[in-house]
Design a protein around this nucleic acid. Sequence first.
DNA 1: TTTACTGTTAGGAC
DNA 2: TGTCCTAACAGTAA
Length: 261
Amino acid sequence: MPELPEAEAARRRIADGVLNRTIQSFALGEISHVELPSEAERAGLTGTQFTRTHRHGKYIFVGSADGPWLHIHLGMAGSIRVTQAGEDTPKYARLSVVFDGGTRLHFRDPRKFGYVRMVPDVDAFIADKGLGPDALGIGGNAFAQAVGGTRGAVKSALLSQKKLAGVGNLWADEALYRVGIDPAVRACDLDAVRIGGLHSAVREILQTVVETGAVYAKLPRDWLIHNREAGVPCTRCAGEITKKTVGGRTSYYCPAHQVAA
DNA sequence: TTTACTGTTAGGAC
DNA sequence: TGTCCTAACAGTAA
């Protein structure tokens, strides 16, 4: 379920598991409709080592000292797994990088919305994509400018990677639930105090999920993530969780305490 | 068998 | 020109 915290957990798995090991070979799974590095690009990486990682929003980068970067996007359902010699290849592994000693880095992607490609430069990639500031590092003023000015639904603004990189459907709902804002409210109708509160909520939620390694079971029981179902009681007031579509995305919220103003 | 789905983006509407 | 909205993508799982 990859948004920023899941991408960060994946990045850490890569950083902890396979840096400074020599790449021996690659293995491919069922790869129809999956974008992966070409045979020539894979050959170019063989014999080299990854030495550093980077993440911006939901986008992951794995690089050698001066070579191109391996860029991973997890899409709707992708994940990263590291296995040791003798362990089975995980299901839905599309690309596996085999390192010295048999350690393997697997890019899994059941739904095939993700991809792996080579990019020459991370900053240029981010600029080219038009990605906004990383949602974990963005300051209050930048957040207010990015999200506050738009005329569309505040949830749509949170989901726009061009305004703010890293927030997806689940954590956008979680943040709005915490601060009590209706997801369909026009962002430009929110006052500075509420925008400030939303900024804090987004950062705190993402930070907390990152700290658990994106293991949802470790998150507090009163979070919306454990109650994303129409009809269940709200954990913050006497209301009831309700489902509606905002900006084309399924949204869960509590109409009793998530209000327009 | 039917339905919904966590992300991204092209294309059309305004 | 810019901003916003919808549909589509491919496959899985409930």
